[in-house]
Structures are given as C-alpha cells and as structure tokens.
Design a protein around this nucleic acid. Structure first.
Lengths: 143, 143
DNA sequence: CAGAATCCCAATTGATACTG
DNA sequence: CAGTATCAATTGGGATTCTG
C-alpha cells in the first residue's frame, strides 16, 4: 500500500496487516456464507450507528480521553446540544459500546465509560487522526 | 454481550502500533500548537463528512470493490435514494476523495474512482470489517 | 446542579416522478 | 444511465422545563 507524498516524520510506515482493505477482502472471501452475511449486516449496522450526527466525535473523545467522561464534559468539549448528546449516548449504551453509571450524590454525577467492544473500535479513530496529519479535506490541496 | 466469545483470538484488542489511540495521543502531544490545531480541525471536518447518511457505506463499497464504480452500481448495491447518493458523491468529490469521469457514450456512463487520499482512509474501513467479525451490536429496544 | 423530557422550527433524508 | 425536481418524513438544533 502506498503512502502519499509527505515530508512527515517516520512513525510506522508499514500499514498494519490487520486492518488493510486487501486483508479484509481476503478474509471476507474466506467466511462461510452464513457468517459472511452476519458480518455484512453488522458492518452496515455499525456504519449506520456511527453515521449519526456527533456519534463518531463522541467516540473519538473517549478514545483520546482514555477515561470515563461525564455528560457535561462531553457537552462542553463537543458543543453538542444536550438533547442530541443524550440521544447519542443512549444509542451507544444500547449498542453495548458505553456503560452508564449514575452516582447518587449531590450534585448528581453520571459517568459514561467505554466497553471493550468500543475500545476494539478505537484503532479506526486513531487511523483517522493519523490520516489527518498527512492530509487535508477539500480544496483538493494535498499539502 | 451476545456473541462476544468466538472461536477466534481477540486480535483486535491489541491495536497495531500505528493506528492505536495511545500512539495517536502521543503523536498529537508531539505536534506544534499550530499543526495540532489544523489536525484537530481536519479530523472533525472528516468526521463531519463521514457522518452523513450513506457516506461511509459508499466509501466501504469502493474499498471492497477496488475499482471505479458507476452511479447505478452504487445505487443498486447500497439502496441509496438517487438524490442523496448524488449529493454524497458530490461532497466526496469536492473533498478530493473521489474523481468523477463522464464518458460521452450512449447510454451515458459516469465512473467514480477513489483518489490516493481516499485510499489512505481505507484501512479504517478494513478495521470496521475486522471488528464486525468478532463483535455484534446489541441492538437495544426500539424507541 | 446534572441531565432527561418537551416543544418548535430548521435541516437532512427518503420516495418517487421526471429529464437530458 | 445518471442524475434533478419535488414533496413527504425523519432527524437535528435551541430553548425551556421538569426531576431527583
């Protein structure tokens, strides 16, 4: 797999053999029809979930925070309206990607924490960040 | 927690050093303030772009196809309404992720092809696929 | 006080018909 | 075939209100 023109620091140039598209394609072809169908459905469900406003931004926040976050922290960092944020957090919790823990205190405190299932997703977000170091969107300008 | 236990090793749990969140976090801290700000903005622009209906599904289709795709192929494979698909393709093209080539033929033919910039994004989609092999979304109760 | 619920309006998306 | 045009349906944003 090639790399774009960059004068960028070394990092690790070799893309992980684990998440390249060719690898995924090969793996897909190796699946049984039944299992493959399940995987396809899961992928499209996942993309459907991630493809709602603020959802990926929320996950990215958790990925970089590396610790539980409170509703108000997310609200502040993302600038997401409370009703929308509330809905996204509910969806992510129902999907099994976050757990919600309410502490019976004054003032009240609710913490959301990622599940292993969500953390297994994080490398993709790390990749987006990595991508952003080497690229820009729009204008066709390839720094 | 439905099918968390599989006959496959975790694998995804150990993120590749290249796109793991820790690596990204460390890299972020190493950036100059200016560059870091640009990267942050690019990431959120990217997530904004990807977070529209069907956008990631379109890119996934290209990632697995590995070749140019026509409007009708995408429409058929994704079941996306033509106006929405049209808009998404326009956005992706303007973002520099796709190129559009129209052939002067009868019947008309238009092919969309990924740019290197888009292909640099594909490992993330491969990762989503990989994730789906080991996980499921526990779709919660309907609203 | 955190945050869930509600209402209302704007923006996005979907379904379908239609055109070059 | 590859889109537009149009209109209905769904979703998101902002302000406000309610509750523990």
């Amino acid at each position: 797999m090639r790399r774009e023109s960059r004068d960028r620091p070394p990092a690790v140039e070799a893309p992980p053999s684990d998440c390249g598209p060719e690898a995924a394609k090969a793996r897909r072809d190796a699946l049984s029809p039944t299992e493959r169908e399940r995987v396809e459905r899961t992928v499209s469900d996942l993309l459907g979930l991630l493809g709602r406003a603020h959802t990926m931004a929320v996950l990215k926040e958790f990925a970089f925070a590396g610790e539980p976050l409170r509703f108000s922290e997310l609200e502040e960092r993302l600038g997401t309206p409370p009703n929308t944020l509330s809905e996204r957090l509910k969806e992510l919790t129902e999907a099994g990607l976050l757990t919600r823990r309410a502490y019976d205190e004054v003032p009240p405190r609710v913490e959301y924490e990622t599940t292993p299932k969500a953390r297994a997703l994080f490398p993709a977000f790390g990749h987006f960040y990595r991508w952003a170091e080497d690229h820009d969107l729009d204008s066709g300008v390839e720094r």
